[in-house]
Design a protein around this nucleic acid. Sequence first.
DNA 1: ATTACATATGAATATATGTTCATATGTAAT
DNA 2: ATTACATATGAACATATATTCATATGTAAT
Lengths: 117, 117
Amino acid sequence: MEEEFLECNILHEDIVKKVKQKMPEDAFIYDLAELFKVFADSTRMKIIYALLEEELCVCDLANIVGTTQSAISHQLRLLKQSKLVKFRREGKVIFYSLDDEHISQIVMKGSEHIEEL
Amino acid sequence: MEEEFLECNILHEDIVKKVKQKMPEDAFIYDLAELFKVFADSTRMKIIYALLEEELCVCDLANIVGTTQSAISHQLRLLKQSKLVKFRREGKVIFYSLDDEHISQIVMKGSEHIEEL
DNA sequence: ATTACATATGAATATATGTTCATATGTAAT
DNA sequence: ATTACATATGAACATATATTCATATGTAAT
């Protein structure tokens, strides 16, 4: 017959306090999640794997990944915004390549986890 | 006046062929993207950071993360499905903890990238 | 058995996100 | 200037996903 709305009491107050102190800032967590979002799509992951091998133009990427030029171009924009790829122009063709050594490390750690399942 | 719909010719055939051979299977890429999806949400990232410190129950997680018990519970289900957390029951309380050493490594690599921007 | 409470879960809603289509931009060649 | 083509981009659409709300389940205590 209780009329309370106790969503959730703290069960272990000291532990909660301790963990809260060690938590990173919200903005940091947000940025980190944003970074992992880039890896969280199979089209982008294919692009990344392709670029791990070779500097590639948009058109070749579309062929390798198996989708349209437009889709690749949209995804490259996200990768650019996250500073994961860089590019250079050569006439009409634009070549993309990976911009950061962490990328392969992140991908490798992820694939280790997958392979051990 | 051309009536062709050349979406995208292969520009560098030899390179495309070479990179294609080195590409992982689609299923692997898909699984990898699925894994990174788990890290690609700030609520789950907060849960992960909290669990890096300490084994925690759902209720305490809700307080630390700053959301409802239900939201935490839903997210823990995803983390369970990806084999990233394990749990043990102690009476009414269920304690969650990280299930894999790769998790901290993946998070650390990601945060290195963030911090260098 | 009934009450309390920690957790789980289904359905609904709102929002985010990827692809497609049409079109624009930029560069080179004629 | 005009044509060709590699790439970029805006809008529309479809799908995925996170949270909320209500409610169910499981455990312990009375």
